[in-house]
Design a protein around this nucleic acid. Structure first.
Lengths: 352, 352
DNA sequence: CTGAAAGCGCTTACAG
DNA sequence: CTGAAAGCGCTTACAG
C-alpha cells in the first residue's frame, strides 16, 4: 500500500515531492477509497451519494490535489500530449502554424511537444520513436519527409495529420491548400497585369507541393494563351528560401531587368530576390513585379512591394485539431483544403 | 503478472497496442527477469555476465523494444520533458529562442513541451500546473509575468530558468543581456553620428527589461553631455510591437521630420515606425535614422534601412540548457549575460 | 551475477 | 453507492 508523503515532509532538495498529493491523500482525508475519489474527480458524480461527492471535492480543495497525468497516461496507455514535428522552426510560416496549433490544442485540452526535424529523415524517425514512447495521442507533421518509422506508423493507422505536404506514404489526413490553384492564381495575375517576360523562382530541390504550384501556374498560363515554354525557370541553391531567391536572382538579373514579372514560390524566396534587385539597382515592383505565395502579415509592414497569395496559416491550428479528432476517433478524415486569397500591394492602414 | 500482448494480437483499431513490447516481452524472449533487462538497457552492463548482456541485447533488437518513457517517469517521478512557456510565439524573437532551445534540449536528450501564455498570468498558471502534473524536469520561461503558481514554484526551488526577463519573484536563474548596456550602446551611436533631435519609441506598458534599456540610454546620454530631458519619449498602444511603433510614430511624424534619430526598443517597433514614415513620405534613414534592439537576421534582407543592436537569440538555447542543468543539479546558477553587438546598415552580401 | 517484490499514481471491471 | 484488487511499464533496494 502506498504511503502518501504529507506536505510537510517535502524536502527542499526534492521539489517534485510536493506532487505527492495523490488520490490516496485525498481519499484518506475524505475517508473514502481511491476508487471513489478517482470517479468523482473524473466527473463520475452521479454514481456517488451527494454527501460523498461534497466531502471529496472539499478534500480535493483543501489539499490542493492535481491529477498526475503520468499515472493516468500509463494506466490508460494514452496521454493528452500531441507530437508536433516541424521541418524547420526558423521558417516563419512553420512558426505561425506551430503557434496556432498550440492555441487550438490548448483549447481542446491537449499540450504540444514541439520537435524540429530540420527536414532530415533520420531526425524525424528519432523524434517519432521518442514521441511514441511518450504515449502521445497524435502526431502532426508539417512538411514531412518519407522515412522508415513514419511509414510504419502510417501502416499501423496511427493518428497522423499531415500539414502543407501530404503524407509521403499515402496514408494520413491532410491540412493545406490547393497548390495548383495557388499557382493558377498567380498566372491570372500576371496575365491581367499584361506582364510579358515571365519567370519562376524555385528551389533546386522542390517538394511535391512546390511542383504542384509550378504546374498549376504553367497550366493556367497555357489556358490563357501564353506558351509556358516562354517562361524562364530559375532554381536557387540554399538551405533557407532566402538564399534560394538570392541565388537564383543573381542569374536572373545578370543581364539587367529582362523580366517584368517573377513568380516566387514563397515569401522568403521573394525576399531573397528583392535583396538582389536592390543591390542591382532594379526597382521593385516598377521594373519587375514580384508575386509570391504565403502572404505573411509582415509583408504589409516591411515588404509593401510584394504581392502575395495569402494562405491562412493562422487558421491551420483549429483545422489540424479537428482533423486530429477525426483520426483519433478512427473516422476517415477527409482532406481539409483551406481557401487562399490574393493580397495586393500595401498602402496605408485603412483606419488612417 | 503481466501478460505481454504479442505483436500479432495488435488490433488495427488500437494502434498503441504495438507499444506492448515491454521489458517483459524482452525478458521472456531472453529467458531472464525484467530486472536484468532493465539494468542492461540502462547501461548497467558490468553487473551482468557477458553472455546475458549479449542475449538481452539480441532480444531487444529482435522484438524492436523501445523503453516506455511514461512508465519510467512514473517510477522515477521525473520525465525527460522540459516545459517551455513563452509569452508570445508570434513574436519572431521568441520563436527563435524556442527554436534554438528545442535543438539544444534534443542534443541533451530532452524533449520540449511548448506553451504560449499570451503574456497572461492566468494562462501561465494553468500551464505551470499542467506541466507539473506531467512531471516535467524543468521550466523555461521566456518573458514571464508574476503569478501565483510561479511564485509557489519559486519558493519550492523548482528548476526554473528565466529568459529575457528576470524572475518576477526574485528567485530563479536568468539568461539574457545587459539591457542597460544595450540602451547605452544606442546612445553612443547617436552621439557619434552627431544626431541632435532624439526620440525614444516604447510601449505604453513596458517591462522592467524595457525600462532598463531606456534608463541605460538616458544615463549614457547624460555622461556624453546630452541633456536627457531634451529627448522625446513617445509611447505607443498595441498588443504587438508593430502596432506600438506605428501608433507612436503617428504622433512623432505629425509635425514632419522634426526628429533626426529614433531609438526603437525592438525591431518590431522599428518596423511599425518605418511603415508610418513610408506613408508620410519621410525618408529612412536619410531624414531620420532608426536604431533598435534585437538585430533580427531578417533585417539584412528586408529592412536594410535599420540599424539594430544584435542579440544572439540563436545562442540562447544552449545557454538555457546549461543553466537548466545547473538548477536541476541544485547548484546555484549564476546569471548568464550574453554579449551584444552593434549591427550596421546592410549592403550587399560580402561574398558578392 | 540474477531475480522476486514493492511501488510510482492512476483507472476500471468486478463484487457486494 | 462503494471498495478491494489488478495492472499499465518501469526502477531499485534487497536477498540470495
Amino acid at each position: 500500500m502506498k504511503q502518501p508523503c504529507p506536505y510537510q515532509q517535502a524536502l527542499d532538495l526534492e521539489w517534485t515531492a510536493i506532487l505527492d498529493i495523490s488520490l490516496a491523500t485525498v481519499a484518506e482525508r475524505a475517508g473514502v477509497s481511491v476508487s471513489t475519489v478517482s470517479r468523482i474527480v473524473n466527473g463520475e458524480t452521479r454514481r456517488a451519494s451527494p454527501e460523498t461527492v461534497a466531502r471529496v471535492l472539499r478534500a480535493v480543495e483543501e489539499v490542493g490535489y492535481r491529477p498526475n497525468s503520468v499515472g493516468r497516461a500509463l494506466r490508460t496507455r494514452q496521454s493528452q500530449v500531441v507530437a508536433m514535428l516541424v521541418a524547420n522552426l526558423d521558417n516563419p510560416v512553420m512558426a505561425t502554424i506551430a503557434s496556432s496549433t498550440e492555441a487550438a490544442l490548448r483549447n481542446a485540452g491537449y499540450v504540444m511537444i514541439l520537435c524540429d526535424t530540420h527536414d532530415r529523415a533520420d531526425l524525424q524517425d528519432e523524434y517519432l520513436e521518442a514521441m511514441r514512447s511518450q504515449l502521445v495521442c497524435g502526431f502532426v507533421l508539417v512538411a514531412a519527409v518519407p522515412s522508415r518509422v513514419l511509414s510504419k506508423l502510417c501502416h499501423e493507422r496511427a493518428p497522423l495529420v499531415f500539414v502543407t505536404r501530404r503524407s509521403p506514404h499515402g496514408v494520413g489526413a491532410f491540412v493545406g491548400i490547393d497548390d495548383r490553384a495557388a499557382g493558377a492564381a498567380v498566372a491570372e495575375c500576371f496575365v491581367s497585369d499584361k506582364r510579358q517576360r515571365l519567370g519562376v523562382v524555385l528551389p533546386v530541390h522542390s517538394s511535391p507541393a512546390a511542383k504542384a504550384r509550378v504546374a498549376g501556374f504553367a497550366d493556367r498560363l497555357a489556358e490563357l494563351g501564353v506558351d509556358p515554354r516562354t517562361v524562364r525557370h530559375e532554381m536557387g541553391e540554399g538551405t533557407s528560401h532566402l538564399d534560394v531567391g538570392y541565388d537564383a536572382a543573381h542569374r536572373i538579373f545578370e543581364a539587367g531587368p529582362v523580366h517584368d514579372a517573377l513568380f516566387c514560390l514563397s515569401d522568403q524566396i521573394a525576399y531573397g530576390v528583392h535583396r538582389r534587385a536592390r543591390e542591382r539597382g532594379i526597382e521593385i515592383p516598377e521594373a519587375c513585379s514580384l508575386i509570391s505565395i504565403d502572404g505573411s502579415p509582415l509583408n504589409a509592414w516591411i515588404a509593401p512591394w510584394l504581392c502575395s497569395i495569402q494562405i491562412p496559416y493562422a487558421n491551420y491550428g483549429e483545422e489540424i485539431v479537428s482533423s486530429l479528432k477525426c483520426v483519433t476517433a478512427e473516422e476517415t478524415a477527409e482532406d481539409r483544403i483551406l481557401p487562399i486569397q490574393m493580397a495586393s500591394y500595401y498602402g496605408p492602414i485603412a483606419k488612417d
